[in-house]
Design a protein around this nucleic acid. Structure first.
Lengths: 224, 224
DNA sequence: GTCTATAAAGGGATAGAC
DNA sequence: GTCTATCCCTTTATAGAC
């Protein structure tokens, strides 16, 4: 899928060893303490060099912040779009994508990114938009396409509003773990826990859309 | 339900007109710009008075922040615990609680609180814990009890893991709207939109747990 | 590009008069 | 309790030497 485009390439060369080092350190710092509590002084204490060097590569703190979010979002988004569902059956595909999704969403990297984005979405509206489009919305879309492709009675499964169905599946899977991790810093679930949790959600989800004799002819769940 | 207890009542009288005015202004300011960007100077520009007066009522900025979160959380939590499901049937009760829940969660007051809590949950771990326990966990628990009470075949409904069921119901209902509103500042849904959305979720949720002839004898969705 | 040194502004917090 | 004035520290950002 498409790479996240940089918001605005700043003055000097777009790539340099020092610039990369600064950016990398800035990623760690911002993810750990947030925008407001991260100072340029603290940054150079980690990466070495001087403030002037930082400002030679990044116009100001806001631009540096945008570069940081771009960088991390690119990582997460790449991981998400790397999930290939071609060739999977309905149930196996849901299990596969579900495990990857839950793992990714609860990863430290993503939780820190989400916290940062949510915290600063008011001050930097573009950040929130870009995160949502290249994160959650991308996942919903991939799921939605997969569901539609298998909405042919396979395993008695049929769906009319695939966008809503995709959001429901992802929400059942993610919401609680995501919020717990954001608020009380719960540890990420183990691979085994993820597997079990996804199995339960997949089964319940498929039951929800299983065709029944008593079903209304429409069969969909109108939403919005 | 129980009121949120103050984290630590500071030196002077716990209540005074000036203190209330300061706290009220602080609530608005912190909710709007966050902890880091809110300065005492900005605060007194809104409420009047001097810095020294602020520090006469609150030990420091951190304590003021804790008082602010306490205050808003108390509002939200009170609204949530005010939902009384006694006398409702299964479907009507879910519709009722769902509408209230979605309305409350997407309200500006709650979104601003959630943003603030998520942003500062690392620096102030207690804040995150208190929010989660008196917000989401409280909602899950209420739902869970209601589901268990109606898990008797009413409307062909039976549930074995009521905690998971409650979390799934709330997640399907809330997750997408909540995240959208946090990240891209979507407007809160109208009463009509809420009504329609809840109807769809309630129907899907009840279908998910509807007893079937082909059902496995266990019938539950093991989780965790 | 990279450094040292410093500017200019704003932050939290307090002393002391009333 | 409330004010004025101020302390002390950190912040972002830049000037100027190399």
């Amino acid at each position: 899928m498409q790479q996240i485009q940089a918001i605005k390439p700043t003055g000097p060369a777009k790539t340099s060893a020092k610039r990369d080092a600064i950016l990398e350190a800035a990623v760690e710092l911002f993810l750990e303490v947030g925008y407001g509590a991260a100072s340029i002084n603290t940054l150079i204490a980690h990466v070495g060099g001087s403030k002037a060097t930082v400002y030679a590569h990044f116009e100001n703190k806001e631009r540096l912040f945008e570069a940081v979010v771009d960088e991390v979002l690119s990582e997460v988004s790449t991981a998400m779009s790397g999930i290939d569902l071609a060739g999977f059956g309905l149930r196996d595909g849901l299990q596969y994508v579900g495990e990857h999704l839950l793992h990714l969403v609860t990863s430290k990297r993503h939780i820190d990114l989400a916290r940062l984005v949510i915290a600063e979405a008011q001050r930097f509206p573009e950040i929130g938009r870009i995160y949502y489009d290249h994160g959650p919305a991308l996942a919903y879309k991939g799921l939605s396409v997969f569901l539609l492709e298998h909405s042919n009675g396979e395993g008695s499964f049929r769906v009319t509003d695939e966008d809503t169905a995709a959001a429901w599946f992802a929400s059942m899977l993610i919401h609680r773990s995501f919020l717990e991790r954001l608020c009380i810093g719960t540890e990420p679930p183990s691979s085994r826990q993820i597997e079990v949790k996804v199995e339960a959600v997949v089964t319940a989800f498929l039951d929800m859309y299983r065709l029944r004799a008593t079903m209304k002819s429409e069969g969909g769940y109108p939403c919005d």
